[in-house]
């Protein structure tokens, strides 16, 4: 066999690097620049405007609340579903396939589906009315019903985006040799102990991937929230949207984008640190 030239790997990687540089690094640098540039030069004025806005605090709070509720819920749910999947042998692929259907639905479409369900004259109200549980159209998604609005958003997000966690965790479960669980069982571990002492620690790498992916995407939540709540439930990205298109203030929108990115990076760094598997403890 002929020796490959040393530059070959770099040559093969070059297109993807160029692609990322052109479509990711460059816009990123542009966004950061945009957020710190003002008429008088470089300053943090745009960030001050952003932070001084009435909606900023609630957008920040809402985003964190949503991430804090949705992500753990999704992880717990996906762990349960994945665990159940490991128990079935026949039809496993079909069940997994059905569970992952929402993954193929665009988030705006998902938001609209849930809107159709939950709006004043939607399916849910019709059903409740038919059952005699409500007297007429009832609002669930208005600014007067923040709790049901929040619950609706959580529901829609969980419905829409748990599948990706599930897929990652199912793959992770598949990587754990079944002997570990069996050994734990033989040596007296209850199913719960087996899960917490053996399965979870061995699942760490997949959990880490799933958490990073889900958390980063959850901080960017927008379409579902906007479809269901409009401006009744401001989040960081919806505020960026408002500044960009309604207020026509691109610089403040860029500042929002940078904040979202900073939070995502911080979350990723935390996951990488907390859920790291020491080299000696690898499989």
């Amino acid at each position: 066999m002929q020796a490959r030239p040393a530059y070959l790997p770099y040559l093969l990687l070059a297109p993807s690097v160029l692609f990322l540089a052109a479509l990711f690094l460059y816009p990123l640098a542009e966004t950061i620049l945009l957020s710190v540039r003002t008429a008088e030069g470089f300053s943090f004025d745009n960030y001050r405007r952003m932070a001084g806005d009435l909606n900023f605090a609630s957008a920040l709070g809402n985003t964190f609340l949503l991430v804090g509720v949705v992500v753990p819920l999704q992880i717990a749910l996906a762990l349960g579903l994945a665990q159940m999947l490991t128990k079935i042998t026949r039809g496993r692929e079909i069940v997994l396939w059905v569970w992952t259907i929402p993954m193929g639905v665009s988030d705006l479409a998902a938001g609209l589906v849930w809107l159709a369900l939950l709006t004043d004259r939607g399916y849910v109200n019709s059903a409740l009315f038919a059952l005699g549980l409500i007297d007429g159209p009832t609002g669930w998604l208005s600014y007067e019903t923040p709790v049901t609005l929040f619950v609706a958003i959580v529901l829609a997000e969980v419905w829409r985006a748990t599948a990706i966690v599930l897929v990652i965790l199912v793959a992770g479960f598949g990587l754990i040799p079944k002997e570990y669980g069996e050994a734990a069982e033989i040596f007296g571990a209850t199913p719960w102990q087996r899960f917490t002492r053996v399965t979870l620690p061995l699942l760490k790498p997949s959990l880490q991937t799933a958490l990073i992916l889900r958390t980063v995407l959850a901080f960017e939540v927008f379409a579902v929230v906007f479809a269901l709540g409009g401006r009744n439930f401001p989040v960081l990205v919806s505020e960026a949207y408002v500044w960009q298109f309604e207020n026509q203030s691109y610089a403040v929108a860029a500042a929002y984008a940078v904040v979202v990115m900073a939070i995502s990076l911080a979350a990723t760094a935390i996951y990488l640190r907390v859920l790291r598997v020491k080299p000696e403890a690898r499989l």
């Binding site: 040799p177 050994a183 734990a184 069982e185 033989i186 040596f187 571990a189 209850t190 403890a281």
Partner: peptide
């Protein structure tokens, strides 16, 4: 009885010692 209540020990072919 489930394995944990049978009060026995086992050595597996591929050891199955917990890596973590």
């Amino acid at each position: 009885l489930p394995p944990r209540e049978r009060k026995l020990a086992m050595v597996f072919q591929n050891y199955a010692v917990f890596p973590h």
